[in-house]
Write a protein that binds this DNA or RNA. Structure first.
Length: 217
DNA sequence: ACCCAGGTGGCCC
DNA sequence: GGGCCACATGGG
């Protein structure tokens, strides 16, 4: 089977099994960004606790995050783990946003994907995955997000033998229509698959793409 | 009592 | 450019 046909077939199986994910799980683009930073190597449930804390304290907006003390921010985001490191990252982002765009994401996002990616990557705490998550799920621009699940599942099912972020990203974007809805949904579905079938031990029972890959994942 | 989760930056070679 | 390590919590 051709790469593109295989990728689309897997996509259809995932969509049929899990249904549309309508990601990101967040109410506003700003919340999506904070969530994207806080979820770095962390359990999403823990991130939700941190987000809830920020909402309850009514500081989930650029200017408030920039104003509050580190001690307070750290306390609020503590459940998401690496809280001291992440407080610096969150502060770095809002500092950039407020100082350059007066807090307006709409203005910050008003540029091409490559320009936006370069700008995001220059901010402390934003690497390739977080940048793509922001571009896709906060700025609503077509880009494919690669995460640990994508890398693990892709290699385990024999789709590719790749380890580097941009190699895997290019594999998906190069063999898929560059449509926002598709790229957005595909990554979300991979996470859905990963959460149920691809934790630490290989599983094939009940996996919706097992019949495509014919291998344990 | 382990083990792990939707990464990144800093260092070293 | 790649390999290692620190960063930290809550749930299974």
């Amino acid at each position: 089977m051709q790469k593109q046909a295989k990728l689309l077939k897997i996509y259809k199986r995932l969509l049929a099994h899990f249904g549309p994910q309508r990601w990101w799980p967040g109410d506003t683009p700003f919340e999506v960004i904070i969530g994207a930073i806080l979820t770095q190597s962390a359990n999403w449930g823990n991130v939700e606790m941190a987000i809830d804390n920020l909402k309850r304290e009514k500081v989930l907006n650029p200017k408030k995050i920039l104003e509050i003390r580190y001690s307070k921010l750290e306390k609020l985001i503590r459940p998401s783990g690496y809280f001291r490191a992440k407080a610096k990252k969150v502060k770095a982002f809002v500092k950039h946003l407020v100082e350059n765009y007066n807090g307006s994401l709409k203005r910050m996002f008003n540029k091409s994907i490559p320009e936006l990616r370069e700008e995001l990557l220059a901010i402390h705490g934003i690497g390739p995955e977080t940048a793509d998550s922001i571009i896709c799920y906060a700025a609503y621009k077509p880009t494919f997000v690669v995460d640990a699940y994508t890398k693990r599942i892709g290699n385990r099912v024999g789709l590719f033998k790749l380890g580097k972020y941009y190699d895997i990203k290019d594999y998906f974007e190069g063999n898929l229509p560059k449509k926002y809805q598709l790229l957005n949904e595909y990554h979300a579905l991979i996470v859905a698959l990963g959460k149920y079938f691809c934790k630490s031990k290989p599983i094939c029972d009940g996996c919706p793409i097992f019949t495509v890959c014919q291998r344990k994942i």
